[in-house]
Amino acid sequence: MNRRTRTALLGSALLLTVAAAAGSAGASDESKREAAALTGKAKLYRTAGDDITFSFDAHLAAKDKADPMKATGTFEWSHYLNGEGAWAKAKVDCLVTGGEVAVVSGVVTDTDLPGAKGTRVGITVHDLSRHDRLGYSWATTEDLGPKDLPKCVGSAPFEKVRKGTGGFTVVPWRPDF
């Protein structure tokens, strides 16, 4: 075998070895990656000047990839106008994401809103970088809605996030169907 052929074969073998190593490293990274996540904080835009903040720290571990109801974490929100309002914190009980959209639900564990503790709520987030949007299960009710709201139910993300505050990150869920 001449020197040129040997050099080309050796170079090809080296490239194949590097590509295989990179591929297996990528596969192991994929298996370690969370199955889904929703994190971040933002304020909603309201022309009346309402101070409305939502924050999320919701995760579905890779080992629980097949069951979004094993998600963990918390989310919280507050809504104030002219010094009056309330806040609440919920423990995550379901997280489903797809592309840039996440639906998270949870049960209110702490709040200063009378009658809200123990209520399940759901929120939908559309992660659009600087133009995130958000919707919540109580959008069409006067209170936080029915206590029997199913897990992972939210409304369409109809609210606009205030300019400069969008900071949601959605890790897409990729179930094995």
Rank of each mutant, 00 (worst) to 15 (best):
M1D: 06
N2L: 02
N2F: 02
R3I: 09
R3A: 06
R4L: 09
T5M: 01
T5E: 05
R6W: 02
L9F: 00
A13V: 01
L14P: 00
L16G: 14
T17M: 08
A19Q: 03
G23C: 04
S24N: 09
A25N: 00
S28E: 13
S28T: 14
D29E: 13
S31C: 06
K32A: 15
A35I: 10
A36Y: 15
A36Q: 01
A37L: 05
L38R: 09
T39G: 07
G40W: 04
L44K: 00
L44Y: 03
R46Q: 10
T47H: 11
T47S: 15
A48C: 01
G49L: 01
I52N: 00
F54T: 00
S55F: 06
S55D: 09
A58E: 02
H59C: 00
H59N: 06
L60P: 09
A62P: 11
K65L: 12
K65V: 11
K65Q: 09
P68T: 08
K70D: 10
K70R: 15
T72W: 08
G73N: 05
F75E: 06
W77A: 12
W77T: 04
W77Y: 15
S78Q: 15
S78W: 08
Y80V: 02
L81I: 10
L81G: 01
G85D: 06
A86M: 12
W87F: 14
W87K: 09
A88M: 15
K89W: 05
A90L: 12
V92M: 10
C94H: 07
C94D: 11
L95H: 09
V96G: 01
G99A: 03
V101I: 13
V101D: 10
A102W: 04
V103H: 07
V104T: 14
S105I: 05
G106A: 10
V108D: 08
V108I: 15
D112V: 05
L113K: 12
G118I: 01
T119I: 11
T119E: 05
R120T: 05
V121C: 07
G122Q: 04
I123L: 03
I123G: 02
V125D: 03
L128F: 04
R130V: 00
R130T: 02
D132A: 11
G135Q: 06
G135H: 04
G135N: 07
Y136W: 13
T140P: 01
E142F: 00
L144T: 05
P146W: 00
P146K: 12
D148M: 03
D148S: 13
L149C: 12
K151A: 13
K151S: 09
K151D: 11
C152L: 10
C152Q: 11
C152E: 14
V153E: 11
S155K: 10
A156S: 10
V161T: 13
R162D: 07
K163S: 12
G167D: 14
F168P: 00
T169P: 00
V170R: 06
P172G: 02
R174A: 15
D176C: 03
